[in-house]
Nucleic acid binder design. Structure first.
Lengths: 336, 336
DNA sequence: TATGAGTGGTTACCCGGTTCAGAGAGGGAG
DNA sequence: CTCCCTCTCTGAACCGGGTAACCACTCATA
């Protein structure tokens, strides 16, 4: 029942374990006949290299880490992370890299997890997500000297490599589209204000609206409840907006329901745009106009960069495609 | 920049590395004064035990695995797995266990991942999810002799420990509730037919309806599109159902939209029940009656059992609480 | 005074794979 | 026949910890 080791193979093949090591790693130093025999025996007894023993010789751990700092109820509802992970996995699996995952409740705990993983030689690098402004995690990771790919805006990523997409561009496109439809009062139901990408969107939204439309931004925690509450407040104001942009689709769906409950027609009286186009956007009536992004591809790009970084290559910041607007039934001309 | 080892600490403290090992592991064999000095030095230079070196001594890897065999687009939309992972993480984090995650595309690939992880001594055990009938993975994992907790029905889990909840009970409760409301034609939009829990629900549904209501089951792949298509077909039939039970909430929301699009009133003409009560159920109008389960707790129980199994304890199958019906606005009396 | 039991530490070796220096065997050139 | 080189393979050391066995010393007991 014990797992076979190269010593077992060596005994069977009648050679030293060094010869086995060379043979199995494709290194010179053994004849082709011996190599073939050794490989045959290894396959027969189902030998696998012990990752711990390899790691001990300074080899890579063949593993990268990801820590998520969000409460369970938000993580579950946001398809973003699962899609991101799927994309990351696709790249890692090809190179037999594993992904170590941890859900944490604070940035402090998150930094501690990085220190532990790195100190224990468990991982070769990490992804850093959900960047805050003046993020202490960036300094911590720079200090550790570990390969890191930041999935987020490079303005706050310090000397760490970033993979990002231009949310500002997506906001400008959306506002331009809504203004062209005649909207002059546009609101935004935004996510957590501490996140860098929220700030980027906030700024781009204010700039894009400046001079062409009244604008208001309400911050939430990404949950449907807060999205609903924000919508209710916006729609209750005397000069209510004729269009609302939501930072995720669960809030957009909640907003749509609030509008229907308040007898506000969508898209007749109110246009709705959702960020991050998950299947959810398409199953409600009317289907939601959404900012579409290939999230698995985004994760895949980040994973490629992290592996390159681990291999010692230098990795400049990579700008992924910006989200593009996919118009559906939830947007239309502004009411006259 | 090199990571400190116990040898470094030993040099600094002027003792042998064995003394350091004893001191840091809380073992007897060193004086309290020496122990304190060693611990102080270890903290000062930020020492962490190298996980590879520990694992090499036959110690645990302090890591468990989870392989998910679902396409990315379904994984993203199902809050189930993220909530399950959150629950698992909560327990693992307390014991400094890590979770190794891999998304695979076939059961064969999944078994290969298990073999590799186990052969490489990367993990101490795994969770097995999405059981099929006559699942080859069960035999494979039994053969490997690795600690496993099956998250699913024990009827198909062989000699492996299972953590499960009685979906049959939930189905009976739901059907009873609908029948009490006067419904006599009930349909079910089910998930993948190959999954054991789908089969369990199918059987319970047929039995619960037998003699009291006409019933029909349509299988889908869990996506909103298929949920919508199934609903459209069901509502187009001459003797259309007055109630539909959906196997997840994205399909239920899609079904709700289809009903509205076909001018079928919910709950006036049609009652809708969703399985797995995510926040999504509550943000649509009307809010969905749902089968509620504490999924993070479910994951936590599974994690506790897996850790017990790894510790060498014997773990009987554990039946978690069945999902309970949470009535909301989407169900009502059958139309007369 | 010899014996025994704790302390507090050490030396030696193990885990499984990698790496380095070098040892024989065989072959070709001089 | 010797010299040298290449090919194939081996012993020993190493990575960073864990553990068994043992040793030197102190103090209490027979």
């Amino acid at each position: 029942m014990k797992r076979p080791t190269i010593a077992d193979i060596a005994t069977r093949a009648g050679v030293s374990k060094v010869a086995v090591s060379y043979a199995l790693n494709g290194q010179p130093g053994v004849s082709e006949a011996t190599r073939a025999k050794i490989i045959a025996i290894a396959e027969e007894i189902g030998w696998r290299p012990n990752s711990a023993a390899r790691a001990l010789n300074g080899a890579r751990a063949n593993c990268v880490g990801l820590a998520l700092c969000r409460p369970a109820r938000i993580l579950g509802v946001e398809p973003f992370f699962m899609e991101l992970i799927s994309g990351i996995e696709g790249v890692l699996a090809d190179r037999s890299y594993a992904l170590l995952l941890q859900v944490v409740t604070s940035h402090q705990q998150e930094s501690e997890v990085y220190r532990r993983w790195w100190g224990e030689s468990r991982i070769d690098g990490v992804f850093l997500v959900d960047l805050h402004s003046c993020d202490a995690r960036v300094a911590e990771l720079e200090r550790l000297g570990m390969p890191v790919v930041v999935i987020g805006h490079p303005s706050e990523s310090g000397r760490l490599s970033a993979v990002w997409s231009d949310d500002g561009q997506a906001v400008r496109e959306t506002v331009g589209y809504l203004v062209a439809l005649g909207h002059r009062r546009i609101a935004r139901v935004a996510g957590l204000p501490a996140l860098v990408h929220t700030a980027v969107r906030d700024r781009a939204f204010a700039e894009a609206c400046a001079g062409v439309a009244e604008h208001a931004t309400v911050h939430t925690d990404y949950t449907g409840e807060e999205g609903a509450r924000a919508t209710r407040r916006l729609l209750s104001s005397p000069d209510r907006p004729t269009a609302i942009i939501y930072d995720n689709d669960i809030m957009a769906v909640a907003g749509l329901s609030v509008a229907q409950e308040m007898r506000v027609e969508v898209p007749g009286d109110l246009s709705i745009v959702a960020w991050d186009d998950s299947p959810l956007s398409q199953v409600v009536r009317p289907p939601l106009t959404a900012l579409t992004r290939d999230i698995p591809a985004y994760g895949a790009h980040a994973a490629q960069r992290l592996l390159a970084l681990i291999a010692g290559e230098s990795v400049p910041p990579y700008e992924d495609q910006a989200a593009v607007l996919t118009p559906r039934g939830s947007t239309g001309p502004a009411p006259s």
